[in-house]
């Protein structure tokens, strides 16, 4: 009896120590849930969600201050991914986020650009090159299509161009000639 109690006590102590040790050893720094949410956001940094960038929106979702349906560039796919991650029910997209826009990048009309640098200051990802009184240009590969550079331009020489579909980024369409409902084996028809 005493041996049994001792054995159990020793085991309890050992596991207690192990747990205590691992909680210190494997302590996770920072706020992992914010990182996880941020990883799902499209990083367009456009501010359309009402926050100054994706991470602030992630923080606000994590704190339960904002809902998951505010990001237009991410669209429904992002909303569903967020719902999945947070274990909440999907909600319909909010207001203007409901309309999906085709992906586009900003293009500066280099003839008209006056080199005012205002767009450079607006770009959240430093995707615009140029210097004062020099022509500016957008690095197409880095542009997230956030449209933040459009309003500051005093001569309105920036416009959005939809991304071109070519054979390298073309996608097979979702089959449209088939929309049978998933059925249970029980009500299967004989073909």
């Amino acid at each position: 009896m005493i041996i049994a109690i001792l054995a159990i006590a020793t085991l309890a102590l050992a596991f207690g120590l192990l747990l205590g040790f691992s909680s210190i050893r494997f302590h996770v720094e920072g706020d992992p849930i914010v990182d996880k949410i941020d990883a799902l956001l499209p990083q367009t940094q456009c501010g359309q969600c009402g926050h100054p960038g994706c991470r602030p929106y992630a923080e606000s979702i994590a704190n339960g201050e904002d809902s998951i349906n505010k990001c237009p560039p991410g669209g429904e796919a992002t909303m569903i991914a967020l719902a999945d991650l947070l274990g909440v029910d999907p909600v319909p997209m909010d207001g203007e986020a409901a309309v999906e826009k085709p992906k586009a990048v900003a293009v500066i009309d280099e003839q008209e650009c006056i080199g005012c640098t205002l767009c450079i200051q607006a770009c959240p990802v430093d995707a615009i090159l140029g210097a004062a009184k020099q022509m500016h240009t957008v690095i197409g590969n880095e542009c997230t299509g956030c449209e933040l550079c459009l309003p500051p331009c005093p001569v309105e020489c920036i416009h959005m161009e939809p991304l071109k579909v070519d054979t390298s980024n073309w996608k097979w369409p979702f089959p449209n000639n088939a929309s049978p409902e998933l059925v249970n084996a029980g009500d299967a028809r004989h073909a």
Binding site: P42, T44, A127, E142, K171, W172, P173
Partner: peptide
């Protein structure tokens, strides 16, 4: 057709993820 759709869609999403990662880094640097 479903598999082809799923394959190209997966590639596109993978690419988008990489682009988002790059944008996040550039934004952080900025």
């Amino acid at each position: 057709q479903y598999y082809r759709y799923a394959k190209t869609e997966s590639w596109a999403q993978e690419q988008e993820k990489q682009k988002a990662e790059q944008a996040r880094k550039r934004h952080e640097v900025r």
